[in-house]
């Protein structure tokens, strides 16, 4: 959908336009928020609140730049407010306050980083089944290689070999993307 048509439909309150917007960006935005909050449930809540608030204020919706940038920026502001409201000393929030002029720049990088993460998730999904299962148990569930070996009734050596294999495949696939975002 073209940018201005989408904005127009959002202003008019079309359900389909909101659904499209939500389904396109929701996961990325939750991950983005979670990067500041380290609290998955609050991250979901903040992003959901943002969408509801866009809908409620649709008559005055004013988006001149890209919608994506707008969403990321809004999530970021909401996260910072949330952290302040919680009166939590958070180094990142302090940093952002001091370097607010760098925010735009930082945002670009963040968007890039989330692209790498998505590519990584896809690449993990494309690993050979056994390799994928073992790699996920290690990284997603935080199990040690010894635990994994025990659960799957394999030797620890096999688990290590599979992890090595996974890392090798992932690095080969993602190397160009990693180096683009290496500064983050």
């Amino acid at each position: 959908m073209q940018h201005d048509i989408l904005i127009k439909q959002l202003r008019e309150g079309h359900e389909k336009a909101y659904e499209l917007l939500f389904k396109t960006y929701y996961s990325d935005l939750v991950i983005h928020a979670n990067r500041y909050l380290y609290d998955f449930e609050s991250a979901r809540e903040i992003v959901q609140d943002l969408f509801v608030s866009i809908y409620e204020k649709r008559y005055n919706l004013d988006i001149n730049s890209s919608i994506k940038g707008y969403l990321y920026r809004s999530v970021q502001n909401r996260c910072i407010n949330f952290i302040h409201a919680q009166k939590t000393k958070n180094k990142y929030a302090e940093y952002v306050k001091e370097h607010s002029s760098d925010i735009e720049n930082q945002l670009e990088k963040e968007i890039h980083a989330s692209q790498l993460e998505k590519a990584l998730l896809n690449a993990i999904g494309e690993l050979p089944p056994k390799c994928r299962m073992i790699f996920k148990m290690n990284r997603f569930e935080g199990l040690s290689n010894g635990d994994i070996a025990e659960r799957l009734e394999l030797s620890k050596r096999t688990v290590e070999t599979q992890i090595t294999k996974a890392l090798k495949i992932l690095r080969n696939k993602l190397q160009p993307l990693i180096n683009e975002t290496a500064t983050i």
């Binding site: 991950i31 990584l120 993990i124 790699f135 990284r139 997603f140 890392l167 690095r171 290496a182």
Partner: peptide
């Protein structure tokens, strides 16, 4: 980098 990020993308 991959190792650290992989732990996080599980959230997706």
């Amino acid at each position: 980098q991959l190792w650290e990020k992989a732990a996080r993308v599980g959230d997706y």
